[in-house]
Structure formats: C-alpha cells, structure tokens
C-alpha cells in the first residue's frame, strides 16, 4: 500500500515520465529538475526499480527553501528492443529536513511513514526515428 500520506512538496519537471532518446549504444542522460516551493529545507533521495541500469547524480541531498536542483539520470548502454516497453520506474522520496541533520542515514531509517512523501516517474525509451 502507498505508505505516504503527505502530498509531495517538491515540484518535479518532468512530473511523470523520464524520456530517454536513443540510440542506446552509449550512455543516454535524462534531466529531472526538483523545485522546492516551500519555506522549509527538504531532503530527497532517488530510488529506482533498476538500480544497475542507471547512474543518478546527485542521488540524494537537501534542497533549500525556494531553490531547485537538476538531477542527471544516466541510462547505461544496452541492447534496445523496440518491442520491449520499459518497465523501469523512479521514485523521488522526500522528507522535511529536521533542524539539525546529524546522520542522514539514520534520518531516513527513523523516518515515520506519514512523514515521507514520494513521487513516481516512468521511464520512456524513444529512438531518434520515432
């Protein structure tokens, strides 16, 4: 079940689909912009259903109030099959930053489900010709 009750505070651009334009013989990068419209600092971390297929930089961090950051999602080369629709998904999990962050690992571990917010994105592969 969807554990998160809080509405995602960050604005994602793109909001739902990460588009990767081939050819896929080399690394293909999609950009994901995270904007923080709130007056609080927000911690985020990126998760995916296919961790070995992508490099994500940065894959976690903190966004100041009113600030935004760009994330590079780099799809590693693979043998593209036009008939195989990508089932890869990404999740941007967020939490309002505690006043003092001593240990981010512990912060995420101890976070209660109703403090967590998340957004899911699909991956869409396109060939230049399509």
């Amino acid at each position: 079940a969807n554990m998160s009750k809080l509405e995602q505070i960050l604005i994602l651009d793109p909001p739902t689909d990460l588009k990767f334009k081939g050819p896929f013989t080399d690394v293909v990068t999609a950009n994901l912009k995270l904007m923080n419209p709130s007056d609080k600092r927000v911690c985020f971390k990126v998760k995916t259903t296919a961790p070995r297929r992508y490099c994500v930089r940065p894959n976690s961090g903190t966004i100041d109030p009113g600030a935004s950051i760009n994330i590079s999602v780099m799809l590693q080369p693979f043998d593209y099959d036009p008939n195989e629709k990508s089932k890869h998904k990404f999740m941007v999990q967020t939490i309002f930053a505690p006043t003092t962050i001593t240990d981010t690992e512990a912060m995420w571990k101890d976070a209660k489900p109703d403090e967590l917010m998340d957004s899911k994105l699909r991956c869409v592969f396109e060939l230049p010709s399509e």
Partner: peptide, 14 residues
Amino acid sequence: ILSEDDFYDALSQT
C-alpha cells in the same frame, strides 16, 4: 496507486 514495484536506492555510479 498500489505499486507492486520494488524500489532500490539509485547509485551515483554503477
């Protein structure tokens, strides 16, 4: 949305 997907921490390098 009930999602049956398993999510893992994304890596900053493979």
